[in-house]
Amino acid sequence: MIDLLRYDFMQRALIAALLVGLAAPAIGTFIVQRRLALLGDGIGHVALTGVALGFLTGTAPVLTAVVVSVLGAVAIELVRERGRTGGDVALALLFYGGIAGGVLLISLAPGGSNATLMSYLFGSISSVTVQDVWVIALLAAAVLGVVTVFGRELFVLCQDEEVAKASGLPVRFLSLLIAITAALTVVIAMRVVGLLLVSALMVVPVATGQQLTRGFRSTMLLAMLCGMVATVGGLTSSFYVEVPPGALIVLFALGGFVLALGLGRFVRRSRPQESN
């Protein structure tokens, strides 16, 4: 671990991994609660169009990815709000549109090909620059800030939208806030695990946490801990065994889930009075 830190690229990667491991499960808890576990995937696919747009126009792909994925997230939220059914279909439409748009735009970009997109699809944390680290830190702070300041209101919203309305909460604003925060999370996680695996970091640690906890707050905190252990653990292991860190991070997270599943069953059995 110590010799790991001697490499500059590894230091940057570890900071990025830590921040993503912290931020993604925090907003992920609300998303899972709202039954929008696939929202992150939808935004991730749309973000691909944003990345390609960056290459096409010669701007930083992270920047265009932020803009396009925020727009995509708002679109998903509006479709979800309008249509009483078909929220999953709306998501599916964005999945396909996002991938197709990304592939089309990258082929138009000078010198771009599908191979250019690969590092965004599957992550390339070892190539994170100092500037990337700053962007990730800023966005992660924004995500955690939203969760801290609006957490109470988001909790009510995710429990019951009508009650939120009858409590005078700005329901539409809060819904959009969740969607936009999710979009920011997708972009920061993009470099670490890749767009195709982004959602795993928002969902899997939450699923792990809820095996062992009884409350919302404790689930969120445990999920954040699981997220950090998975990202840092996956990244360090990938340094030694020469496999893509993104995949290893997600497999670490899944391993944690399986572990928690067994542990949770054991814990629940030792508290039988709760199972009525």
Partner: peptide, 12 residues
Amino acid sequence: SVGGGVPSTIRE
């Protein structure tokens, strides 16, 4: 309505 199955305590 308990969405998604994230547990919440009665107090929360």
